[in-house]
Nucleic acid binder design. Sequence first.
DNA 1: TATTGTTATACTCTATAACTATA
DNA 2: TATAGTTATAGAGTATAACAATA
Lengths: 168, 168
Amino acid sequence: MDDSGQTATSAGLVTAPHVLDGEQPLDVADALVRLSGLVQGLYARIAERHDLTPVQAKLLCIVADRPRGMADLARCFGVEKAALTGLVDRVERRGLAARSSVPGDRRAVQVVPTDAGRQASAAFHAEVSAELSRLLEPLSPAGRDQFRAAVAQIIAACQGHGPDDGTG
Amino acid sequence: MDDSGQTATSAGLVTAPHVLDGEQPLDVADALVRLSGLVQGLYARIAERHDLTPVQAKLLCIVADRPRGMADLARCFGVEKAALTGLVDRVERRGLAARSSVPGDRRAVQVVPTDAGRQASAAFHAEVSAELSRLLEPLSPAGRDQFRAAVAQIIAACQGHGPDDGTG
DNA sequence: TATTGTTATACTCTATAACTATA
DNA sequence: TATAGTTATAGAGTATAACAATA
């Protein structure tokens, strides 16, 4: 199971630099967990810079792409639909999105971004893209291409057996 | 800033497969966010399988490696030390760890895993390693090595300007 | 009957501020 | 005074169960 045969202690999965400030080489699992921690931390930090929680940032990005109903959003987040009520309440209270009625189905609502919400989502997206690109700068141009291809391959192989995500 | 020059919509950062079931190629940012979502989701799912929250699993992994004080743990998690009280309360209440007094400093406590906690942490760690390795199976052996090397390089370049993590 | 969304309740995680006890 | 840890309070995010309105 352990791709590299190192004596991995439990601490490796911990992701915190403090725990592994020694110079043990990382096995695959540690490397992935720590990379994922970097990305999540970056995502959260940028969201906070825009006075958003990570979940709110994600919600705004989704509805900025296209308005969606509550059940649809619940599937996007991989959570129960009841959780969406409070989520949307909060972005609505902050003037970043609004519930809009759907002509043709009087039960349904659509969550649409306000202008402020669209601006926040665009600015957030731009910063995340920029900082994530910067994350790859230590790699050579060829290395970046290989890396991106590898990640795309991994993701493609997971389409289907991973209905939810985690970026919240 | 956009390494690949694709017209990235906000939805790309959203990580949810449902949002991007079209066949647009992923830019680097999307790829990293989605990979990180896969890893976090996997981590959370395995924790749940062991009846743990992701944060509890991480806490057990940390103290299984070596007992630690509350302030130390707070630095590991990148949170305020006040947050640790409840965190440790809950794993203690569940019989997975215990507060132990430190001879020589009557203010301090150390969080030590119980036998049950050690077992849970070891089982959790093994499963995460196994499933993360499986995640890389679509890559060729050479591709896996390149990938691991690239991730290690990225992480190494971040040592220092990323004091906290995200795996919680 | 199935679907859409909400309410009520409870739990986990986190932040801030104020506090105690020890060093 | 500084450090270790706790308490109190508040808010976000989530789950479950029960419910309303519409399809």
